[in-house]
């Protein structure tokens, strides 16, 4: 007797519920880690692009051109294969023969970080350009050293101006974690695929995966929207 829909999605011996939830957890973890790594790259990229010197500007421009221009799945592949080659080389040189590779989760997070960082670069850069120069001068005129200006005036306002764009980038990061299925990370899409294959119920499992993506996206989106409204309060009349 074949199990019914309820049992397939449940947490019993024939149910996929636990594995699907675990995969959803992997998806969220990869998205969060990748997004925050991307924030670091984004802040660095924005600093480079805003530099008054030519060389840093060109490095920043190169970074955003590459990682916004090359399809993300290609970046994932390149990091996956390039990463193993590099790690193997290093290990062999260090006297450990054999073949090595990085955990797929780590590669996935780096790939998402690099690509979303390129988009976050633009979000932070344009937010910084929206800052009122006078308010920064007012801080300097009070004797604020640079680090204090950055922490008390520039950072909070830049974050507030960047937040709407960051919210969009977060939503696409969340979806793009599904590309990591191609290198074997058991995230939501890959787990749904496995379940679909072994139960021959693709519509059910891909449908469930879609619903789970939507739920995660809506919940995090609502949280970000709340933060955005909170930070926007001083600017409303």
């Amino acid at each position: 007797m074949t199990p019914g829909t309820f049992e397939l999605l449940g947490f019993g011996p024939q149910g996929w519920g636990f594995l699907l939830l675990k995969a959803a957890g992997t998806t969220i973890a990869a998205a969060i880690c990748g997004f925050f790594l991307g924030s670091l790259f984004g802040l660095l990229g924005a600093a480079l692009k805003l530099s008054s010197l030519l060389a840093p500007r060109m490095i920043g421009q190169f970074y955003t051109t590459i990682f916004r221009g090359v399809p993300e799945i290609l970046i994932v592949y390149l990091l996956f294969f390039g990463g193993s080659v590099a790690v193997t080389q290093v290990m062999n040189l260090g006297g450990f023969p054999g073949f090595y590779s990085l955990p797929v989760f780590v590669i996935g997070v780096i790939a998402i970080g690099l690509v979303s960082g390129a988009y976050q670069t633009e979000a932070y850069r344009s937010a910084f350009l929206r800052l009122n120069r006078g308010q920064i001068e007012a801080g300097a005129a009070c004797g604020m050293p640079r680090h204090l200006l950055l922490r008390r005036i520039i950072a909070p306002q830049t974050l507030r101006f960047a937040l709407p764009a960051l919210g969009n980038i977060w939503q696409s990061v969340l979806k793009e974690t599904s590309l990591l299925s191609v290198i074997g990370l058991t995230e939501l899409l890959r787990q749904a695929g496995t379940a679909a294959g072994s139960t021959r119920q693709p519509l059910l499992f891909y449908g469930i995966a879609a619903i789970l993506f939507l739920i995660i996206g809506r919940m995090t989106g609502a949280a970000l929207g709340g933060l955005e409204r909170h930070l926007a309060k001083p600017w409303s009349r």
Binding site: G134, E137, A138, A141, C142, I153, R160, P234
Partner: peptide
């Protein structure tokens, strides 16, 4: 040496 600006320049946040 405090300064008062034409455009006030209060910190808006």
């Amino acid at each position: 040496v405090a300064m008062v600006f034409q455009n006030f320049c209060l910190w808006s946040h």
